[in-house]
């Protein structure tokens, strides 16, 4: 009678912890086209693809040493003709009378196809989710973060500044006489102003400075670890960089309102934006193309 182990529709393998094959059943001949008698004495590496050797060395062998077993692991054997054959295996270490590893192996060709499809589906969903996330966070006209994203980042900065004991500066920026661009030169010219101002604002912002378009002609900045002097310097950079911005032969200027939350301050984002907005209106009233700073005594000009 044919030995029962050779009748099994799966592989049975016995190896030493030193990776030497002690026994292989007929599966290795019938399914993998390997000479099962020549396998005895060979190293387990000869049965594995290069990737599976890495997997054996970095996962299976440490698991066998540490826990004495590996359950339901999938890797690729290499057939007599050199093609990879996906298999699922369970491995057990037995320590007496001698330390040996017993492998129970099943082919996993179909299962492998399913996994490949699952992984691909996961990647598709992930990349789709990332794209949706980007879209949901971005202002489509300027490519800047939108209001939702600004609020998320600014709240994160506020929390982080709380922990680290840093101040935060919030700026509201409004393009001067924006309505007249639209009225006199059409909406395309208005869009052009928004786009180019957005690009200018992004170009002047550095690490730790979040800039965003909140909507309409209104923009906002959140400066991490910035005090009044730092925020005023940022506002100056914005005013200065606009000297080069001309649309429809008209120069573009902005009004800026600043508020500072000092280290240890307790105002939340909504309150801070409101104060920056008060300062912004003060800048408009003061003749536009300037920056006002909100303090507890009221708006004061920023030089």
């Amino acid at each position: 009678m044919i030995p029962p182990l050779d009748m099994l529709p799966g592989g049975v393998l016995v190896t030493t912890l030193g990776r030497e094959v002690r026994f292989a059943n007929a599966f290795f001949r019938t399914d993998l086209g390997l000479d099962d008698t020549a396998l005895v004495g060979a190293q387990i590496e000869t049965l594995l693809t290069p990737a599976s050797r890495v997997f054996y060395d970095t996962y299976l062998h440490p698991l066998l040493l540490n826990e004495g077993r590996c359950d339901e692991v999938q890797f690729n054997l290499i057939s007599g003709s050199g093609t990879p054959v996906p298999v699922v295996a369970c491995l057990r270490r037995a320590d007496a009378p001698e330390t040996l590893v017993f492998w129970c192996i099943m082919r996993a060709d179909n299962r492998n196809k399913m996994y490949e499809e699952l992984v691909k589906a996961q990647e598709d969903v992930n990349s789709h989710a990332r794209r949706m996330q980007d879209l949901a966070a971005t202002d489509s006209l300027t490519g800047m973060p939108n209001r939702r994203e600004f609020e998320r980042q600014a709240r994160r900065d506020l929390r982080s500044a709380d922990r680290a004991g840093h101040s935060i500066a919030l700026l509201m920026i409004d393009i001067d006489h924006f309505k007249s661009f639209n009225d006199n030169h059409g909406h395309a010219a208005g869009d052009e102003v928004l786009r180019r101002f957005g690009a200018t604002l992004m170009a002047v912002s550095r690490k730790g400075e979040t800039v965003a378009r909140l909507g309409g002609e209104e923009f906002a900045c959140c400066l991490y670890d910035a005090d009044q002097a730092g925020a005023a310097a940022f506002a100056r950079r914005v005013h200065d960089s606009l000297r080069a911005l001309v649309v429809e032969q008209r120069s573009v200027t902005v009004s800026i309102g600043i508020t500072i939350r000092p280290a240890g301050g307790t105002r939340d984002l909504v309150a801070l934006l409101k104060l920056a907005d008060v300062a912004l209106y003060a800048a408009k009233s003061a003749g536009r193309n300037c920056t006002m700073h909100h303090s507890d005594t009221g708006p004061t000009p920023c030089t």
Binding site: P50, V54, Y59, N112, Y115, V119
Partner: peptide
């Protein structure tokens, strides 16, 4: 070094497969 890009791709796929299994 011992490995080609195809080996790396195979290893990454194997990690996915085993994660799903585990």
């Amino acid at each position: 070094g011992g490995f080609d890009r195809a080996d790396l791709e195979e290893l990454l796929a194997m990690m996915d497969q085993n994660y799903i299994g585990w």
